[in-house]
Design a protein around this nucleic acid. Structure first.
Lengths: 115, 115
DNA sequence: ACTAACCGTAAGTAATGGATTACCAATACA
DNA sequence: TGTATTGGTAATCCATTACTTACGGTTAGT
């Protein structure tokens, strides 16, 4: 089986790096929208929006549902999980490491003051 | 006064979209490193690393400290705050909105079953 | 069945961005 | 004071990518 959605945090980062895609993703915040509605008011053409939606979909950030001649795109609620987890983990790591070095530096400083 | 660091979530996303920059950022996870050490083993040249560090710095993700002829780069512990906050907020919004529509749909379904 | 609305894909183009090499400035050290 | 180490910047090149227009396919409605 081949997976259509990736959702790895790096793919998500690359998908959200483009301002137009961020704007589209933003417009999905409060519910699914058809492609036309999403393109409406954007400074780019509708086909461009289709292409962006494809990238967002492959990153696992959105899902689509067909309804007649329209296709509704909505956010995939698990799409951000990996990225959020990665950032949390990274942050924890940095804080922990900072604490270690602060302790070490303090110890070194204390030792220096021993003379 | 002009701010050297931006740290807006969109700038952070654009900075972390590049795989080489992610690798550099990753190498800073457990403490500051000089540029040469960071470039060591990477598939790109040292000047390339310098340029990436500039982007990371302007995004507010890293800070630098000069020590002799070396320049140590380390993670800025507040660098990820905005992005993390944005993702959390977005996620909350999506969940809340999903709940609302689920409720509404359920109500509609109930009404439909009323005949 | 014909027409209109909606959307995805293909092909081509222009712009962005990541890489390189070459160069220069600053510090350390003999 | 010369020489080596370290690293930032400039100029340039090339690959990627974000756009456009043109087209075709599918569904709805008359």
């Amino acid at each position: 089986m081949d997976y259509q959605y990736i959702m790895a945090y790096d793919t998500v980062l690359e998908a959200l790096a483009d301002p137009t895609r961020r704007e589209i993703f933003e417009r999905l915040r409060d519910g699914p929208r058809p492609v036309g509605k999403l393109a409406d008011g954007l400074p780019v053409s509708r086909p461009a929006v289709s292409q962006h939606l494809k990238v967002l979909k492959e990153a696992g950030l959105v899902t689509d549902r067909k309804d007649g001649t329209r296709r509704y795109y909505g956010v995939n609620r698990e799409g951000l999980d990996e990225l959020r987890a990665y950032l949390d983990e990274y942050w924890e790591d940095v804080l922990a490491n900072f604490a270690v070095h602060l302790e070490r530096d303090t110890a070194a400083k204390d030792k220096k003051n021993d003379d």
